[in-house]
Write a protein that binds this DNA or RNA. Structure first.
Lengths: 143, 143
DNA sequence: GGTTAATTGTTTCCTGGTTGACAATTCACT
DNA sequence: AGTGAATTGTCAACCAGGAAACAATTAACC
């Protein structure tokens, strides 16, 4: 079988590890949220709304989570059906402002402990100092 | 709008950054390979075969790239159509060994430079030492 | 040796996501 | 004011990947 000699490239290897780690985390996260009939991205929307503290447009949500308009529509569709979220009319009639509902806030509150514990558990192989180091490196990478 | 008070949790924030970074890299990578009508994972298969140095089974490929049997079948289908890869019969008639073809090896060779440059470019915000640090932290995380 | 369990690859169906077209609306510019 | 460009949300069509069912084969074990 032919074989190409590949020079050792530390950048490529680091990148592959990063992609692999990210992939694992997404899968674990999606599996976790499956218990509530959501995906990680649905939860992301809720947290973005909660963080914003005020209703924001769908396109703004998409911008903050790096997702397409079309996908935000579908995410909101489900969250609205679950009453976690409401679509509000707005001065600009192209725009629908998305508001976190009381039910949605209760969902965040009720699941928060478990979510944070899972996060800490995922990072358990690293010491607190290492976690901080990782965080800073990623900040630089995401500039 | 209701708002849940979220305690600052560095582990969760680090995790989110990791997922976001991974996501960005997957997208960039898939976009890059799109120019050859492949996904990142198709290329992964080729590199795995090249790294193995000998034909390996589909399930082994799936194991190494954390992908399902069903998906490996589809990845190989395309790679075979492009003549980058051949399915070989084998003593165990359940198994098909996948062999990198001469054409496949030439593809790897012809694109390698560009791939490695892209990898280095992605990690450019970090110094060499920082890249090494990142790599080590990820090793620990992936245990 | 014969029966039961496990393995491998494929197929079918489903899901989450993107792209591109579309309608409604607003902006920009004269 | 009025026309052409941009923006927002939605819908249809498509794509990559996963889960489960299936057929073919092999392993395990009495």
């Amino acid at each position: 079988m032919p074989k190409v000699k590949i020079p050792n490239n530390s950048a490529e290897q680091a990148l592959l590890k990063l992609m692999r780690a990210g992939d694992r985390l997404w899968r674990a996260s999606d599996e976790r949220f499956g218990q509530w009939g959501l995906t990680d991205n649905h939860y992301n929307v809720l947290r973005i709304l909660n963080g914003a503290g005020e209703p924001i447009s769908q396109i703004e949500i998409g911008r903050r989570m790096l997702s397409s308009r079309a996908n935000v529509t579908k995410l909101i569709d489900l969250l609205e059906k679950k009453k976690y979220v409401k679509r509000l009319a707005c001065g600009d009639r192209r725009v629908k402002l998305i508001e976190l509902s009381e039910t949605g806030a209760q969902f965040i509150e009720g699941t928060l402990k478990q979510i944070l514990e899972a996060a800490e558990n995922s990072l358990k192989p690293l010491t607190k100092a290492e976690q901080k180091g990782l965080s800073e490196l990623l900040d630089k990478l995401l500039h």
